[in-house]
């Protein structure tokens, strides 16, 4: 069964069309990179999947449960409570980390498992310690975000998202706010779940990484999916002018 089905979604901000008739099916274990120029709608697509933004029309189904369906050309969501339950199957990693600054790394990670999933504190702490150790923050669990470097913050944020044990991880340019020399550590942390059959959607400007980990690459422009295919098809054999042009522009 697909982890995610997106059918003909559009997203308007006022009169501006940020997503134009996007359809996408994601199978379990698939790693998909989303590339495209700035403003093409990559972030908006990810944000619509976990309902930070609400779509204007179309349907989104997560793990077989419809979150939003098209009713008379308009998007109709299931109840707020059901949406909250459903999006727990997705984990989001943001460009600017969005860690909670008044909580330590550990507290950041255990917050939702305890308060949302109602796990016991001991259990949540145990999982959090494992995850933080896995992302290389075993020694920094009790640091507050200001006491972490950018790369460490992002790794803590990845641990926080993984703590809810999601089916689908959404990464919105996880390394764009980081200095080039520390992106490697964050990308390494993402490689493990990718190899371990975690389903991932990654909006990224890291073409090397996209090429390496992706099963499929999606090229977006102007709110459309212009081209999609294997990394080899997209990077070595781009068909559309727009993709060719985009790839030329980023090689510099």
């Amino acid at each position: 069964m697909d982890v995610l089905n997106i059918k003909n979604i559009t997203k308007y901000f006022g009169t501006f069309c940020a997503l134009n008739d996007i359809s996408l099916n994601v199978k379990k274990g698939e790693v998909i990179s989303i590339i495209g120029p700035s403003g093409s709608g990559k972030s908006t697509l990810l944000r619509c999947i976990n309902r930070i933004e609400k779509i204007t029309s179309g349907s989104i189904t997560i793990d077989g449960t419809a979150m939003v369906e098209n009713v008379n050309g308009k998007a109709k969501y299931i109840s707020e409570k059901e949406v909250r339950q459903l999006i727990l199957k997705t984990g989001m990693v943001f460009q600017h980390f969005n860690l909670f600054p008044h909580m330590t790394a550990l507290q950041n990670v255990i917050e939702a498992p305890i308060k949302v999933q109602k796990k016991s504190r001991e259990e949540a702490v145990k999982v959090a310690e494992e995850l933080l150790t896995m992302v290389g923050l075993g020694e920094k669990m009790n640091n507050y975000p200001v006491q972490l470097s950018g790369g460490q913050k992002q790794r803590a944020a990845i641990a926080r998202a993984l703590a809810l044990n999601p089916l689908l991880m959404l990464f919105d340019e996880p390394t764009s706010a980081l200095d080039p020399e520390i992106t490697g550590a964050v990308l390494n942390v993402m490689r493990d779940p990718a190899k371990n059959n975690m389903t991932m959607l990654i909006a990224t400007h890291e073409m090397g990484f996209a090429k390496e980990v992706s099963d499929r690459v999606i090229f977006m422009d102007n709110g459309h999916i212009v081209e999609e295919g294997t990394p080899a098809e997209i990077f070595d054999n781009p068909k559309s002018d727009r993709l060719q042009h985009f790839l030329e522009s980023i090689i510099r």
């Binding site: 944000r47 909250r84 917050e111 939702a112 809810l164």
Partner: peptide, 24 residues
């Protein structure tokens, strides 16, 4: 981004205010 992170973690509006926004 603090609201978005809370929302992405499945927190309700009141949890978000009580646990995340008001303490900050």
């Amino acid at each position: 981004g603090q609201y978005e992170a809370s929302q992405a973690l499945g927190m309700t509006y009141s949890q978000t205010m009580r646990r995340i926004i008001i303490p900050q």
